[in-house]
Amino acid sequence: MAAIGAVFLVQYLLARGRLAWSGFQTAIDNEPLLLMCDGQFLEDAMRDARVTRATLMEKIRASKAGRIADIHAIVLETTGDISVLTRQETGPELLKGVRGA
């Protein structure tokens, strides 16, 4: 019970810290990472994120994009999800705050 209580306490303190100080949120949260841009795989970013080309190809196949040329960007989100953005749906505001964009 003490361990569970400690987990809840740490979670509560982190949530309060995020709300109270913007610098605290910047220090503990990840930022989205650009993994592919205009049909080019960004190998350094993929290596940093430990994401393989096979994983990105799986996400591309599952997306609405019919071809790699239709993809504007692939982003590793802060939650660990991978977003595939096609040229038709990507405005500059969607890549704001994405590392490498």
Rank of each mutant, 00 (worst) to 15 (best):
A2C: 08
A3W: 00
I4C: 04
A6P: 05
V7D: 13
F8M: 01
L9I: 02
V10G: 07
Y12C: 08
Y12R: 08
L13Y: 02
L13A: 08
L13I: 05
A15P: 03
A15Y: 02
R16F: 04
G17E: 08
G17C: 01
W21Y: 03
S22M: 06
S22N: 12
G23L: 14
Q25N: 10
A27N: 07
I28P: 09
I28Y: 09
N30G: 09
E31G: 05
P32A: 15
L34I: 06
C37V: 11
C37N: 08
D38N: 15
G39P: 06
G39R: 06
Q40D: 03
D44N: 02
D44T: 02
A45I: 13
A45C: 14
A45H: 09
A45Q: 06
M46Q: 02
A49W: 07
A49C: 04
V51A: 09
V51F: 03
T52W: 00
R53A: 03
R53T: 07
A54L: 03
T55K: 01
L56N: 04
L56H: 06
M57N: 02
E58F: 13
K59T: 06
A65Y: 07
G66L: 13
G66Q: 14
A69N: 02
D70G: 01
D70T: 06
I71P: 14
I71N: 08
H72Y: 12
I74S: 00
I74W: 00
V75Q: 04
T79A: 01
T79M: 10
G80M: 11
D81M: 09
I82Y: 02
S83F: 15
V84A: 08
L85D: 12
L85F: 15
L85V: 07
T86W: 00
T86V: 05
T86I: 01
R87A: 14
Q88E: 15
E89D: 15
E89S: 12
P92Q: 02
P92A: 04
L94H: 12
V98G: 06
G100K: 10
